[in-house]
Design a protein around this nucleic acid. Structure first.
Lengths: 349, 349
DNA sequence: TGTTGGCACTCGGAAGGATAGAGTGCTAAT
DNA sequence: ATTAGCACTCTATCCTTCCGAGTGCCAACA
């Protein structure tokens, strides 16, 4: 994109003004609010040019201009500068993220909630991708005849469990034997290398008769697989209704409808994440308007950062807000929450 | 409330018409849609009377009438008849509630989701009140130095756990000893009779030095207390935006804002539940419009039923919808979901 | 060549009637 | 107790008008 300096400034100013006023911005008000050393006619020429390039557009003939998706994109990529949060703001966030929790999940929910409160938008987080983490412990506890609890401790400091059904007449001792065998043989293996076959092999040494053993092993396998399922934590959905951008109701409905399908959202985030991994420079994933392929999010921007629980185990946290947002501010808020999250997570690993 | 038969019919007809059309209903359209053997003028007199009694009201002078909260109340208490769901509808619900889950919590979430889909409203459930259930098992598992998992199995067939911090240098054997002592002494005690003192007494017999022991016991106590905390499961919040009654946006915002505070909602449901326990005849709790003391729910009705996990352990499931709803239908839907839930829950106990 | 003042033109939104229609309450007759 | 008839009320809708912010373009200028 070849833009001379003044045109860049004009685009910058248009985005700023539109973000703060929610009104299409015209050449005259641009002159009034900013110190351009040229006349409004000159800006009009520049604006015509910017419109020609598809960076801004008119809602109708005799209105001012608003940034297009492409305009926001240019703004985000090359125009804006990101400041650090003020100490006050940092403190506020630090205070809200309760560091006394004992489980990673609670910490993430906490951070998500804080992020929604700080930005005023919908926030969301993806649970850590645990595929690369490995089993540190696995115990099967008898709950009652026919029912057991599989407890797994993962290298990332995460504890997962699942109630499973087992054959009625298995004894406590038998279960412990199986449990021990699995633990002995699978400890240290990354979750994504554990298959049904691996588990069955691991259980070979025990003296439990074949069909019963097989069932328990299958349930253990299912529990392990469930441990690395991804979860989405959403927060502050109601805030979307407070934004003037969504006063149209239909928009808000579509958005909330889409968000209620967490499988879809998780899929999309994964997609974004793999795109980001191509460019490891980007520490944020930013999708603006139509760039988002989820239904009902055309008027939104979707910004996430990647947090790290360990080197190989990461997840995402971010917000969904209107395209018309203070990008630099929101990005630094997400960034700070992410950093705080990373810091707190070290305690668990 | 003294109403002659025709006036009852008139009120009934007004509610029915208003529910189905969402328009204030006038005397003339009443004649058209129903077989009243009298003239519209007569109905006008009746309607004036009903208005005088506060059962219906006019949005403005020259409009038809709409039911007031009191009118809906009268309708719900004495006018409507509740039909069973059709076999088709029953089947639909049976099919949606997945009975293959292994945990009570999943079952409840499942039922809540189904209820929202069937009614088209926001649905919600309260987790079972476990105070009266008793401890069947309690195990403390060492996760790593300084960290342990407290696993509890309750009489109601519920498994709860919590990660807790413990003194770093406690050995596996010491933990097992404490765990065994607690289990031995507290098994069979209802949760609401377990206090910090009870737990501390239970731990007396062990050979673990005092301050360390005390810390572990405290953590165990906290885990037990956490087990009977109440949770709210919400579903289908976005559906509220599809209802014409909430097209005003402000209403929807307030509603979703209130619902996002689950502590508040839980408190309110508990309040309703204790009111219901005074009249054990009522199998439903129905609150209409202003009867609801939660902020932002003045245009809603709140209907819940009580499900039973065991005789003494129960929770609630229901919906929040617009006052203008098909009460009889919604009530039978909730009732059926509740019955199905009760049936499925037997598997767990 | 880039910049500027000037000007005619456009269009949406606010403001102000006018009108239709559904509904009401009241009165007098049955 | 019920009914027909009628004058009255109020909202929702449609039209028109009008204002003003904003535009594009042109001719003049540095």
């Amino acid at each position: 994109m070849q833009l001379d300096n003044r045109k860049k400034e004009v685009l910058h100013a248009i985005v700023d003004d539109y973000v703060s006023t929610n009104e299409p911005v015209g050449s005259k008000s641009l002159i009034e609010r900013h110190n351009f050393q040229v006349s409004s006619a000159t800006l009009r020429n520049d604006m015509a040019e910017l419109e020609h390039l598809g960076l801004i557009e008119k809602p109708h003939t005799s209105a001012g201009r608003i940034p297009s998706d492409k305009g926001y994109r240019e703004y985000v990529n090359s125009l804006m500068t990101i400041d650090e949060l003020s100490p006050r703001e940092q403190l506020e966030i630090e205070k809200r993220i309760d560091s006394s929790v004992n489980e990673v999940t609670d910490l993430i929910k906490n951070a998500t909630h804080t992020l929604s409160e700080t930005t005023g938008f919908v926030s969301l987080a993806m649970s850590p991708r645990l595929k690369k983490s490995f089993l540190k412990q696995l115990k099967i506890l008898m709950i009652e005849p026919g029912k057991a609890l599989v407890v797994m401790v993962l290298s990332a400091g995460v504890v997962k469990d699942k109630v499973v059904r087992i054959p009625n007449f298995l004894s406590d001792a038998q279960i412990m034997q199986i449990s021990g065998a699995i633990e002995k043989n699978l400890t240290g293996k990354p979750l994504d290398e554990i298959t049904l076959v691996t588990v069955e092999t691991a259980g070979k040494g025990t003296e439990v008769p074949e069909p019963l053993l097989k069932q328990v092993l299958y349930e253990a396998y299912a529990a392990i697989k469930q441990a690395d399922e991804l979860n989405i934590y959403l927060d502050g959905e109601h805030r979307i209704l407070e934004l003037p951008d969504f006063s149209s109701l239909g928009r808000a409905r579509d958005l909330l409808g889409t968000l209620s399908d967490s499988g879809m959202v998780a899929g999309y985030i994964n997609e974004m994440e793999s795109a980001r991994e191509q460019n490891p420079d980007d520490s944020f994933m930013i999708r603006i308007g139509q760039e988002i392929t989820l239904e009902g999010l055309d008027d939104c921007s979707f910004i996430t950062a990647t947090y790290n629980l360990t080197d190989s185990v990461s997840g995402n946290i971010g917000v969904i807000g209107p395209k018309r947002m203070l990008y630099s501010k929101v990005i630094s808020q997400i960034d700070f929450v992410k950093k705080k999250l990373n810091k707190e997570m070290q305690k668990f690993t």
